[in-house]
Design a protein around this nucleic acid. Structure first.
Lengths: 125, 125, 125, 125
DNA sequence: GTGGTCTAGACCACT
DNA sequence: GTGGTCTAGACCACG
């Protein structure tokens, strides 16, 4: 498993780790029932503390991306692609909502927001 | 001046205060050269410490929304509406960028993101 | 006497007042033995407190630009132009020295400093 | 790290601290990604309060000389020498501008100012 | 009265 | 252990 934690990132380490595992599950790099490295092994590999890995694993477990069997290890939860896709979209929607709220609090109309979003979208192409 | 701070918000107090003042400047409730309440008065009114208010005021001063003069008080900076608008848009753009990055890390294409954004926009109407 | 105090200036009011009187003495607008307005009168005129004017007058007296006769008033000290010029240059030199020190502390050589100074001088023309 | 704070300086403590750290970054004593002492450790060492150190660190972070991560520490930001040089020159330019303004307010022509500057430069050699 | 600086504590999230 | 936030005091310069 390829993980890269950056010391300069503003995200806390546990979140960087969590996000990277999550993404690998989403894009199919990590398939259902794959066994993840043990907390201690992974901690050693990416040179961080056990606590950090533990936190990432348990939050992913709570979000139903992983499951743990005591004494055996931690595994990727087998999930239909469709369900996975739904999860992803739901998370994205939450953030879009937040964005709309921010825009409104700044006094922007929804049309003004869309104009800006469209412009930035074009720039990204 | 109407301020409401919540202990339940996950934003720190100084940020809640800062955001509310900023918004009132943006929407025109607070006009240029208006004198704000003194840090001590405001602190008493909203039942928080002087330092919390001070911090909100100084960050807003740094972002050029306020100016403060020792011994005289703190005032809203007179700013052309056009400049204000630019500041607002810039802040919004930063957040849109962040959203696009999040979407990409979730494996969504930019078109998929736009579809979701459009759908939520319609729902908000 | 023409005085303009700005609320937006970063300088304290007493310093703005002091500097403006000083400049008028230097450029000859205020000649030797001219009587200045009384502290109270001036304070009323420029809409500030007596304390502020008092401080400006007494610092100028200390720097030998003014003299006060109890019960009679405050007057501009008659000074040869040559002496005045010397005072001015001395004050300016102090600031130049400070600038050189700052530059040195920033790791700039004296030649680098001169290059920047020359460039800014040209731009001001 | 060598820091010396003086109670006699008219600069506030946090500014003295800030300036000294900044200078060590500029002259290369502190290299990119070097970890600075924790705010608590440094506060103890230089016998000042945690808040004073915190303030110096955060202002330097805002000026992009440092970055700090909760739970990890505070580090010198890796910056190209070229960028660093630009920052330094910009700061110096601000001060030169101020000097020119002072000179003008004293009734000196720009050529008179340059004469004085040149003379003092020669004396420093 | 105003803001600017500083101290000596405290609790929280993160490692 | 680290930094982030917050409180309740204090003294100073300015008006």
């Amino acid at each position: 498993m390829w993980i890269h934690l950056s010391n300069e990132s503003k995200d806390p380490l546990y979140k960087q780790l969590k996000d990277q595992i999550k993404q690998q599950i989403i894009d199919g790099t990590l398939e259902g029932d794959t066994e993840l490295p043990s907390i201690r092994t992974l901690a050693k590999n990416i040179q961080t503390s056990v606590i950090t890995v533990k936190r990432a694993y348990s939050e992913l477990e709570q979000e139903e991306f992983l499951y743990t069997r005591a004494g055996r290890g931690t595994f990727v939860k087998a999930t239909e692609k469709r369900i996975l896709q739904q999860k992803v979209e739901k998370q994205f929607e939450t953030e879009v909502d937040r964005l709309f709220q921010l825009g409104a609090s700044l006094g922007l109309s929804i049309e003004e927001m869309m104009t800006i979003i469209q412009r930035l979208k074009e720039e990204r192409k």
